[in-house]
Computed example of a mutant assay.
Amino acid sequence: MVNYRFLGSSGLKISEITYGNWLTHGSQVENDTAVACVHAALDVGITTFDTADVYANTKAESVLGEALRGQRRQSLEIFTKVYWPTGPGGANDSGLSRKHILESIDGSLERLQTDYVDLYQAHRYDRSTPLEETMQAFADIVRAGKALYIGVSEWTAEQLRAGHALATELGFQLISNQPQYSALWRVIEAEVVPASKELGISQIVWSPVAQGVLSGKYAPGAPVPAGSRAADQKGGAQMIQRFLERPQVLARVQDLRPIADELGLTLAQLAVAWVLQNDNVAAALIGASRPEQVRENVKASGVTIPAELLVRIDEALGDAVVTDPAETAKSSPAAR
């Protein structure tokens, strides 16, 4: 069963393995399979579910809402996000303007079949909208009872500090950041994590298995497996390319096998357990296209990796690791 952690400096506890439905619900897998995956997550103690309005252009929220229908709402933590374009792509169908945020939360609540979300997140930083406008809209959503807490995704340390200051001034809690983080992608460690610890913000990390690369399924010099993320032209292939185009990465991942074997873990379980060793990480997001993937990934919960093995992981991955903090700023578009 999964363990729980507090989210930021709040009193909210979430499951440290959190179920996310990016690239699956509403697009990659059939609805019946998606529902089966959600129920498998509930069966192993996962109570926290993360989605976004942009996933499958709102369909993912609808699938998740249907999958959770009939569950005790108070026993769940439901997260969603706003920023990226939805609908027909009109001039105000994206970003963090007051108009888009207030319209988007209502749409998300209807699709998720709930009166409120536990966490509403800015999916990226909006350089085109004054931060004051964005944070005031979030404050109004919290006061209206439509969201209990506010989070962000892929914000820099400077952006987190500015957002946190405004949230404090407006009387609500900014408690989380959702960045990409894995043993191969460590760009948050130098600046974002220290700032977050200072501010009482936790990380809810996505892609802890580096889009599947850290599972070891991609062998050096071999074609990508059929049905894998790298073969998915709906979005997965583009995301994973940053790892596959560097030949040393796949070879170094294979060097992690003896370490995983020592711990009695698969490579994917080792990757998830690795991100959870960071005390600023509240949860690792995992997706699934089959229920058995949920049951396997949750075995990473509660694992302690000894310090000497963490050193060996660093040595095995070597120069395959990306650490440049400037990568975080690149994830937010210059204009919407």
Rank of each mutant, 00 (worst) to 15 (best):
H100E: 12
V38I: 14
E315L: 15
K13Y: 01
E133K: 12
A219D: 03
D324R: 10
P333K: 12
T328Q: 12
V253P: 10
S108G: 08
P258G: 03
L256H: 08
V187I: 13
L270A: 03
A162M: 08
A237W: 06
G200L: 09
R73A: 05
L265P: 07
D32E: 15
A36H: 07
A300P: 14
A60W: 08
V272T: 07
F172T: 14
V38T: 15
S153L: 07
A147Y: 08
S94G: 00
E133N: 12
A320W: 02
T33Y: 05
V322K: 00
G45P: 11
L112G: 12
Q248D: 13
G302K: 10
L109R: 11
V63Y: 12
E189C: 02
V249P: 02
A34V: 14
G212M: 10
L102S: 14
A282G: 06
R143V: 11
A268C: 01
P88D: 04
A226G: 02
E103C: 10
M239F: 13
W22G: 00
G264T: 09
Q159D: 00
L267D: 05
G87S: 04
T47S: 10
A210G: 08
D50E: 03
Y55M: 04
D314V: 07
G11E: 12
Q113M: 11
V117M: 07
V82E: 00
P306H: 08
E110K: 15
G26E: 03
I101W: 11
E262N: 11
A226M: 07
L263N: 05
F79H: 09
S182G: 09
R246S: 07
I78D: 00
R252H: 14
S128R: 08
E158T: 15
V205L: 04
V44D: 02
D53G: 14
G87C: 06
V44N: 02
S332A: 13
A320T: 11
D140G: 13
A260V: 06
S202H: 03
Q211N: 12
